[in-house]
Design a protein around this nucleic acid. Structure first.
Lengths: 248, 248
DNA sequence: ATCATAGTCGTCTGCCTGACGATAAACAGC
DNA sequence: GCTGTTTATCGTCAGGCAGACGACTATGAT
């Protein structure tokens, strides 16, 4: 029972897995890559990889993100600005049988990114894609179509985290380009929550919450209606009062 | 760069650390144990230990909890009832230098428990105690008094999680015995948040939130005033609308 | 010119919250 | 027994916010 009995702390492999979410064509999408090796060869999986001996967990996640997408992670702890995506730790998965090869503990991270031109996976465009999360999570339990390992569970947890976190934080702006309109922000909420929101009440709410949005000056016509004011994300990270997710 | 290059996944030790919180004498307290070995010998630290080769993370946390306190963890995923304490995963800490001996990744868990008679640590009552979190976290940065390793940071994260989670969930009842009064529940909120709440508005709020409390039948005089109704925790886990934490 | 689309400003009503008065039921001390 | 203290519980009232929805504005399409 001595805590220094070597048999008491068997070696583990530690990986990071990434739940990279974005909003594309009014749908919440996750980045998935096709596995090239056993096990689960040919199946879709979340991007990820092993943590190296000299890097911390967030660093490993940022490196994997950069390798898979070219995105620059933006650690919310740092005041650094940016076009970088939001990155935060999600949860850790360590079931002894989650990887048939060996004992692997995976520290999942959540990344929220604006809509990107196209995913890249080491130049092989065919092996990475944005998959609508509803489709990916629909066939949970079926062995043929679901994600590899326990990645469906991880993805579901990441989606749930994103859905709840945009309620009380300004994180929805992480899905938007640096300058955006109120309508674009509303479509983010609608896509992530899977609901439709009243444009008038939404506009009143977000423009009335102090620190959420700051006017960027110009106006834009991107959708063919009346031009809309452009905004940037304000300094506030916590929304008070929060956005209310409609029932049902 | 091959993901199967053995040098790319160096072995890690994986531990679980526990942030065990309770409310004692109107103060939020955390369980801390005195370290018997180097490094940080003699310093206070969070309870924890190595994950065994055949157990999952929640199982390791429940085992450590049982060993340190005799508490039976109550996994919120299971419908099992209980006097067991609430246990949930908190976050994972993996800085390469967080343990000077070797590369250790620690999966911290949060435990919320009712006030217990006394902590025990393998029979040595002197090596475990309930420490008010305000005191423990007050001397952050001082090398002599703070917790070992990065445990002050872990504790702060756990406290923050508890503070925010009792806003929108019924988790505050985890700090109460199976049957409790509205006043006792209010004192939990006051201790965790460090504020004082209006008893009348609090009573209206908690008794009016569906599923939060169910009457247990009897009444009790525990504090010397008018007898209070006894309640049990209701089935609801998410409070809608949430409790509002006062400003300041 | 007319229509369709999207954005923005107001109004109204109901609900919730915070502030706080009032009553009820126990105990302590005289 | 009476009074003061403590705690619990019920009510009232005003202000604020959210949902429902009407009205107007500014663009592009036909």
């Amino acid at each position: 029972m001595s805590p220094y009995d070597p048999s008491a702390y068997p070696p583990f492999a530690v990986t990071v897995d990434l739940v990279v979410l974005t909003v594309r064509r009014h749908a919440l999408c996750a980045l998935v890559v096709r596995r090239g090796e056993q096990p689960f060869q040919g199946r879709w999986a979340l991007p990820g990889g092993f943590v190296r001996g000299d890097e911390d967990l967030a660093g490993a996640a940022a490196r994997e993100l950069s390798e898979e997408t070219g995105l620059c992670a933006h650690d919310p702890a740092l005041p650094g600005a940016g076009n970088g995506a939001h990155l935060e730790q999600l949860a850790t998965y360590g079931d002894p049988k989650r990887d048939p090869r060996m004992r692997v503990v995976s520290v999942a991270h959540l990344v929220l990114a604006p809509d990107l031109p196209a995913p890249r996976a080491g130049g092989d465009a065919n092996s990475a894609r944005w998959a609508p999360v509803d489709e990916v999570l629909a066939d949970t339990g079926e062995d043929s179509a679901g994600l590899a390992f326990d990645h469906a569970r991880i993805l579901a947890d990441g989606v749930e985290r994103a859905r709840s976190k945009i309620e009380y934080s300004s994180l929805a702006t992480a899905f938007c380009p640096p300058e955006f309109t109120v309508g674009e922000l509303r479509r983010v909420y609608e896509a992530v929550w899977g609901v439709s929101l009243d444009p008038r009440n939404f506009h009143r709410k977000v423009t009335g919450t102090p620190g959420f949005l700051v006017p960027a000056g110009g106006t834009t016509t991107r959708q063919g209606g009346r031009p809309a004011q452009l905004f940037r994300a304000g300094g506030a990270t916590l929304l008070n009062p929060p956005m209310l997710r409609p029932e049902v």
